[in-house]
Nucleic acid binder design. Structure first.
Length: 306
DNA sequence: AACAAAATAT
DNA sequence: AATATTTTGT
């Protein structure tokens, strides 16, 4: 049966992270010191869903996080302490959580999750669970998903009518809305995304290991999301447009990335993942950056490979 | 309650 | 500009 499908499929199979790789992965955090320097402590207090209405809003509680030693795993229980006198006064309630920055790595996890769930099961909640990135909210995902769908639609149109593969192609010339595209272009699009209703769109991925039940051993119950402040500018590392896929009229796809972009386990965190083009980034720089929008930005930082 | 799509806000 | 939030409808 569809051998064409098998063709791409095998390739994808190759790239897709195995359940084990996918689930346990959690975004590594930026250097704790850095995070602390930004005054960003633990913006996420809810682990996975299933949290009683004890803390409806995202009140980052005062879950202090000593830079060095991991907080006791028990701090899960701390969820209740909204205002906790700890640290004096945490503006617990009514605090806005920082905007999430969708880095290419994070987006990749998103795409992988959607791919594995299949379009049909790929709804915000499920995606969020699968991604298992702590700090990610359903709304975060929903919002992103909405945009991503629009993106896919645009792509469908383009690939359907004209034989144009270079959507994100260096130039842009043809594609009209480079608004959201940069990010999305950073991850290959699973073929089934583009042809929703034809052939086999079914996926066999019944296994939903339920991240919520992770066994947190002695260590931070869940990786805290790496928080880094920054301007999109400072982390503007993602202009790596890795081309796109060429879509043949036949329905076959050329793989954009021959060099594989599998994600590796976390490592390489040290200070900065990679010397960005950040000239002289000091805390002060960041602070001024804060000033800019007046808002802090929460960023899930790359774990490594790109 | 969860989802989706559009509009609107920051 | 990129996300978040709100609105409306299912």
């Amino acid at each position: 049966m569809r051998e064409e499908d098998s063709t791409w499929f095998s390739r994808w199979e190759d790239e897709l992270p195995s359940p084990e790789e996918l689930m346990p992965l959690s975004q590594t955090l930026i250097t704790p010191d850095l995070a602390l320097a930004f005054d960003i402590r633990n913006p996420n207090l809810h682990h996975q869903q299933q949290q009683p209405p004890a803390t409806p809003p995202p009140p980052f509680s005062a879950a202090l996080q000593p830079p060095s030693q991991p907080t006791p795993a028990e701090f899960a229980a701390d969820s209740g302490d909204l205002l906790s006198g700890a640290a004096g006064d945490e503006p617990a309630r009514t605090l806005k959580r920082p905007r999430l920055v969708w880095t290419p790595q994070l987006h990749k996890r998103f795409v992988d999750a959607v791919a594995h769930l299949g379009i049909k099961n790929a709804v915000p909640k499920t995606i969020m669970q699968l991604m298992s990135v702590d700090g990610l909210t359903r709304e975060n995902v929903a919002s992103h998903l909405q945009k991503y769908r629009l993106y896919l639609k645009r792509m469908q149109c383009l690939s359907g009518g004209g034989v144009n593969g270079g959507a994100g192609g260096a130039g842009l010339g043809a594609t009209a809305d480079p608004a959201t595209d940069h990010l999305f272009a950073s991850s290959p699009i699973p073929p089934h995304f583009l042809h929703p209703g034809r052939g086999n769109s079914e996926h066999f991925l019944p296994f939903v290991p339920v991240p919520a039940l992770q066994h947190h051993h002695h260590h931070q119950q869940q990786q805290i999301v790496g928080a880094a402040v920054g301007h999109p500018h400072l982390q503007s590392q993602y202009h790596r447009q890795m081309g796109h896929f060429g879509s043949s009229p036949n329905g076959q796809f050329e793989h954009p990335i021959l060099g594989r972009q599998t994600q590796q386990p976390m490592h390489r965190l040290g200070g900065a993942p990679v010397p960005n083009r950040v000239p002289s980034s000091n805390v002060e720089d960041f602070e001024s950056a804060n000033e800019n929008g007046g808002r802090k930005v929460l960023t899930l930082f790359p774990t490594g490979d790109d």
